[in-house]
């Protein structure tokens, strides 16, 4: 491969990496949203069941049994029902005010969320694996510049000036970046920092 084609292939790989990262990151976000919805549904279900049980217990306590039971059994009946009533009430309040994070750590909730949690963790592993590609070890561009639009501009530069150096490409892209009104971090740079706890190309985590 000649040097020019090598540059174009490398830029193409960076563009593809960016595409894959975009898709994986979007999918992970979608899965997280699905997880939030499922968590909400689980919480709603448990509070609904507890409210229903509470109402039933209140009804039992108020209307049933009292006129028919002999006096020696009435105390045990009232105490038992009251204990059940207040335990349910306690659970209802507990689950109503329990924040989602702590709720999601409960064993039975974890079990129900396991399929979606597995998918999310799989996305994390896929992103980690993607960012471990060996060609990133010697990448001649800064992470900020690994952005779809900037890479397309770099491609045009190489096509127009085959002899252009990486230093010059980086300098021009830097200028482009400064001229852009938005200074949003590139997806690649943010995912790298999230995963490795340091700026590209360092790895701390």
């Amino acid at each position: 491969m000649d040097g020019n084609n090598e540059k174009l292939v490398l830029l193409e790989h960076l563009r593809q990496l960016n595409d894959t990262l975009t898709r994986l990151s979007a999918r992970r976000r979608r899965l997280r949203a699905e997880r939030r919805v499922r968590l909400g549904q689980l919480k709603n279900t448990v509070t609904f069941i507890l409210s229903f049980v509470l109402t039933a217990l209140a009804a039992v306590l108020a209307f049933f049994g009292l006129p028919f039971l002999p006096i020696d059994k009435i105390i045990a009946y009232v105490v038992g029902t009251a204990v059940a009533f207040f335990t349910t009430l306690y659970l209802l309040i507990y689950y109503s005010i329990l924040n989602r994070d702590r709720f999601s750590r409960q064993k039975w909730v974890k079990k129900r969320l396991q399929p979606v949690n597995t998918k999310i963790s799989r996305m994390d592993t896929e992103i980690r694996s993607l960012l471990s590609a060996s060609f990133l070890d010697a990448i001649p561009l800064d992470a900020r510049l690994i952005d779809k639009q900037l890479l397309a501009e770099a491609h045009e530069m190489v096509v127009a000036e085959p002899e252009i150096s990486w230093v010059e490409i980086e300098r021009r892209l830097d200028t482009q970046l400064m001229l852009q009104r938005t200074r949003r971090q590139s997806l690649f740079a943010s995912e790298w920092f999230r995963l490795f706890g340091a700026s590209f190309p360092e790895k701390r985590a």
Binding site: M1, V9, L10, H13, L130, A133, S134, F135
Partner: peptide
């Protein structure tokens, strides 16, 4: 094909 970048010939 990122895994083989720089190790085999590739199209643009």
């Amino acid at each position: 094909t990122m895994l083989l970048a720089g190790q085999v010939d590739m199209r643009e």
